[in-house]
Design a protein around this nucleic acid. Structure first.
Lengths: 212, 212
DNA sequence: ATTTCTGTTGACCACCCTGGTCGACAGGGA
DNA sequence: TCCCTGTCGACCAGGGTGGTCAACAGAAAT
């Protein structure tokens, strides 16, 4: 595993990509080390030279993904923004950037979170819990509640807004499936996304005086 | 396959349940006929006595699930209701009833719809398209648009509301995962659900005169 | 020039599981 | 006694599994 870290970035990334993809697509049990080495373009032996076992590889990937998510996503969200919807807007942008930088990490972590940590070593479980907590703070901490209408439960409004945004993101992801993400022009989708956010503001926020 | 239909209901259902579950959990390729026969409590030979092959079984299940969904779900939704949110409320109730009656069908069809019909015989593809169209009509046809606020695009409001409801349902499903569905008291969840619907009405519908 | 070290390969291992077959057999009717 | 209809599960060839290892390449060290 120290062996692996000594490789040049490019080769490391190729192996990480192949592995993340394989585990994301098939889950731990049914993921195939044979397919991984073929996809990564290395001999079978090397994988078990870098990592002692399939499980060892999987744990390395998990830790790598958690670190990546915290560094490139959670840590970059501007939590000084107190307008809930505006913060979600910025969150979405940062998330998209991180996703462009490494699509596979998100797919991998997605499947991991469906049945988390079953028998992960404690230090990884700690990291995972830390990430969850950080994600929560990133979204909810320091929000200006006075922007919301007085006649709805703010907690519930939070959730409705979050579900709406997740719904849009999922539908977009599904629509763009199969296309080469790098070649897609996202501008019109951002515009559309902002329109949805405007509607959410009109709907869940107080009417402000200067609007007629 | 006519052999299969001659079986008593109970045995048929046991085989259907085992098969739907297996395919839903593992997908077509990785589903195991051995696990199916074990779960269904029949000998290996019988499965291939009833169905000529794994593929034949899969196609039968698909058709069965499509028919079930149309009969027990889509056909039972009251489309005379013109209030969008009210209709969704009724839809959710009918869906829940159908889901209680046969949980496996919904899981199976869920995975099927992710990569639909690849090489299904035409009559099944037809059925699938018919179902999709029916689902669309069931949700959107004959809705009273005048209830919605004038300052938001109704199309977008439709989607936001649908995403919200799907978000709630998914979260609930996730929360109840592992519990025996039959023993859960759903009353409080319905109440909570209605509260969310009320908020959606307040947010996306016009303020009506008789409300202060 | 020789030995040692570090990477690297893919054939190979024992094992497991696959979809599907088939001979054996049970029991009811003719 | 002989079918016929169901029913079973041992069995088949084939393919995939995670992991090993003898062989080798080339650079570094002796």
């Amino acid at each position: 595993m120290e062996k692996f870290k000594g490789l040049d970035e490019e080769k490391q990334q190729k192996i990480l990509d192949a592995s993340l993809k394989e585990f994301a697509e098939h889950g731990y049990e049914k993921a195939s080390t044979n397919r991984i080495v073929k996809e990564a373009g290395i001999g079978k032996g090397m994988l078990f030279y870098y990592f002692t076992s399939k499980k060892d590889l999987y744990e390395y990937l998990t830790e790598y993904s958690l670190d990546f998510t915290v560094d490139k996503y959670f840590q970059r969200v501007d939590t000084s923004e107190t307008d809930f919807i505006e913060r979600l807007k910025k969150t979405a942008q940062v998330k998209m950037e991180a996703q462009m930088e490494n699509k596979n990490v998100f797919n991998f972590l997605g499947t991991f979170m469906l049945s988390p940590g079953a028998d992960m070593p404690p230090h990884i479980q700690k990291k995972y819990e830390h990430m969850l907590e950080m994600g929560n703070r990133m979204i909810y901490e320091g929000i200006d509640l006075s922007l919301f209408r007085d006649d709805v439960d703010v907690e519930k409004a939070f959730r409705l807004i979050r579900w709406s945004i997740e719904g849009y993101q999922n539908e977009l992801l599904h629509k763009l499936e199969g296309q080469n993400i790098a070649h897609v022009d996202f501008a019109p989708y951002w515009d559309e996304f902002y329109e949805y956010l405007d509607i959410l503001k009109k709907s869940f926020y107080k009417k402000r005086e200067w609007e007629q």
